[in-house]
Nucleic acid binder design. Structure first.
Lengths: 211, 211
DNA sequence: TCCATCTGAAAATGAGCATTGTCAAATTCT
DNA sequence: AGAATTTGACAATGCTCATTTTCAGATGGA
């Protein structure tokens, strides 16, 4: 057995493990976000991370767990941004709050196409467990939208409607658009895209069907 | 070598092959649409199809090709419906044509949740080849939307805009919503969903961003 | 210094398929 | 009937990993 816990290379066990985990996550982002989850192998990730497979299994129970950890972090990051955005725009009308929150969520994906691919494509149907994770996280998003919009209705800003439907539409639309933008070269400026996305969010949550 | 081509069991070689292919496709729809592509194995599909693996490889070069064939057929079916719908509504305003075409496209997915799962989830990131297939097919859809909408603009019905953006939003939104609807039990009536989808399509293609 | 830990590299193991080959029985054609 | 095909079942092969184990050397602590 390993794991007695003394320092090595000037680092404690926790620090060494944390650094290995960090390298694994960075490499996983690169490989999964570039080659896809199906094409990702443990030996491949380990080699690129300079982490032996033995150490890998000291940190993660298996391959799927690395992906789950990566996705959890990506999602937690975006959720924290959303929370911060909503706090920052407290008191403002929905037409400010929602677009800002959507762009806050998307910032990591707009910055890094690998993140966009992981969060919007590779995560889908990868395995039963991961698919459930995706749907659970999305449900949280749906609830946030519902809460915000219902509050806005109460303020008399917008008309009430099926918020679950609207939220799913928003998430689906944004997903497709951002992934497309992340892939295409050349592409429009991030600024231009953000304007379009903000308009889209607003339209989906507030527009009335014509005639 | 097999393949000399005489009749057997009262059927020609073509008929026998066609029946096997039919059974394989039906089983593939069931397994992929229920367990997912990653969990689908050739021996599994063959056993459920009553087709020997030897015969499988007489029909398809490999596993991926079966999936491609299945997806091709699903897509071709939907595209044919769209074409028929557009023909049927020729001369009518965009507010009739687009919602009708969207619902025509979605009919197979609304009828069979397995088809929805295959077309909207399992197809994503399954392999480089399949991902490319998906994006190519989607591009066709984007072009159709662009063509229809540009024509509508020329008729003075709607304002011009970034049709690629709008089309991607429409496809993404509809995908998320229909898959969600197909999964959830209990769920709203198909009629109700179709009304919502039609409204959504219209809003995405014609609504102006508020303020 | 001496011993217990820790480390990276690499080999070993084992499962799960995809794919190919074998063969006896069934069917068809002449 | 008799030769040639076709069939389905199943064994055989081979490959790609995931996961485990080995091991010689590096490091830390007493």
């Amino acid at each position: 057995m390993a794991q007695q816990g003394r320092s090595y290379g000037g680092l404690t066990r926790e620090e060494r493990d944390a650094q290995r985990r960090q390298r694994l996550l960075e490499t996983a982002k690169e490989i999964i976000g570039t080659q896809g989850y199906a094409a990702t192998t443990i030996p491949g990730v380990c080699a690129a991370s300079k982490v032996s497979t033995r150490h890998f299994y000291e940190i993660y129970p298996g391959k799927e767990d690395l992906f789950v950890d990566l996705y959890d972090r990506i999602t937690a990051d975006s959720y924290a941004r959303v929370a911060a955005s909503l706090t920052a725009t407290a008191g403002e009308p929905i037409s400010e709050r929602v677009p800002a929150a959507v762009l806050a969520y998307l910032d990591p994906m707009l910055k890094d196409p690998r993140v966009a691919r992981i969060a919007f494509v590779e995560i889908m149907g990868a395995s039963p467990r991961i698919e459930k994770l995706r749907l659970d996280y999305r449900e949280t998003l749906v609830e946030i939208v519902g809460t915000e919009c219902t509050a806005s209705v109460a303020r008399g800003e917008i008309r009430d409607r099926d918020w679950r439907f609207a939220a799913l539409a928003l998430v689906g639309a944004v997903t497709a658009i951002v992934y497309d933008w992340a892939l295409h070269q050349p592409r429009s400026s991030r600024q231009a895209l953000e304007t379009q996305l903000a308009d889209l969010a607003l339209v989906l949550l507030t527009a009335d069907p014509p005639t």
